[in-house]
Design a binder for these strands. Structure first.
Lengths: 191, 191
DNA sequence: TACACATTGGAGCAAACGCTCAAATTCGTG
DNA sequence: CACGAATTTGAGCGTTTGCTCCAATGTGTA
């Protein structure tokens, strides 16, 4: 299935419609009709290309996560400031905020039973911790590897909380607090 | 309605059943049948006492929030350590974790349209920020009121992130990170 | 006891849901 | 053009959902 050109175009239209509807109305209000109406296709076309509604949603989440995977090019050089800013962007940028919100929703609902997404998110998170830890090591000579990992873990948790607070209350000065958190968690200058 | 003794008892059974089911299976899997089966009542009895399924849920959330309202007795004396520990407990304690999780779910789903819960949660949050800010002022003389409020806001956001991380990954050493966050965000000793 | 009204259970309704199916149409290829 | 395969449509199926209705029963009061 889906080997002709038109089929692939329809598939893309459906994924776009799903992503947009998801961003606008959230996970709970997302019905098949919402998707098919928006993509301007019949229900049959949808099921010719996807096994289920959930499959389309997971594919959207997968694409979103894929889209923000760490850029291997800059590896080993970025500063903690850059990484922090990138993390904040992950939540703020409407193109990727989706993945973050849906992931949190799934996590809170205890619905992270889906093998594919769960492991993917987990791998993504571990990679991020490792990347932050490496930056900590680079910028603070006295740090041991394990200490750096702890600091990275802690900073990321704090940043996530700041982003979440901002989601709930848009007046929360996210950028300022994010940088302040980095400064606070960073080891003292003298080390 | 609900003026006889048996009615009030049934009402309590329904609220208990709703809270327990909510804690066990989450918001999405909560059907009316789940509630009525657990409370051992018919659907008619339920609707004799509540306007809708949502009304019962909101009442459960309201009670949970009410149950963790700051204790006025200790006001003006608690240390930041105590407040931090209390906040962590709010998420960890199964009796109250419910309210926190459901609130986050609602917030992420963008479903905080309900006037009652939204304002109540907001008031609750502001009170907590104020309480943390007061403790900051008490323990750090050089601080101005506005600075203390910012620190309180920042610490609470960071703590929330730590709790959320712990919800997703139970191996996250929540207690240790929470205390470390407090130490990091607290102004340096010399101030 | 007599009365008004609160309470109860559960059959079943109307709407919404994800999804199926078969017939019709479009597409790429030799 | 001819042919098989892919694609499309949308009515409608089966299920689940929140909720209604009402006859039967229980409860408090005078």
């Amino acid at each position: 299935m889906a080997r002709y050109r038109v089929g692939l175009e329809t598939r893309r239209r459906i994924l776009d419609a799903t992503r947009e509807a998801l961003a606008e109305d959230g996970l709970n209000d997302l019905t098949l009709k919402t998707i098919t109406d928006r993509a301007d296709v019949g229900a049959g076309s949808f099921y010719n290309l996807f096994d289920s509604k959930e499959a389309a949603i997971l594919e959207v989440v997968r694409e979103a996560i894929e889209g923000v995977d760490p850029d291997p090019a800059g590896l080993g050089k970025e500063r903690l400031e850059d990484l922090t800013e990138a993390f904040v962007s992950f939540f703020v940028d409407p193109r990727t905020a989706l993945a973050a919100r849906i992931y949190l929703q799934l996590a809170l609902a205890g619905a992270l039973s889906d093998e594919g997404v769960a492991t993917r998110v987990d791998r993504h998170h571990r990679a991020r911790v490792a990347r932050f830890a490496a930056a900590f090591l680079r910028e603070h000579d006295a740090l041991e590897a394990e200490q750096a990992r702890r600091l990275a873990e802690r900073l990321l948790a704090a940043l996530m909380g700041a982003c979440l607070t901002w989601v709930v209350d848009p007046e929360f000065p996210l950028q300022a607090h994010a940088m302040a958190l980095l400064a606070a968690i960073r080891p003292a200058e003298g080390a």
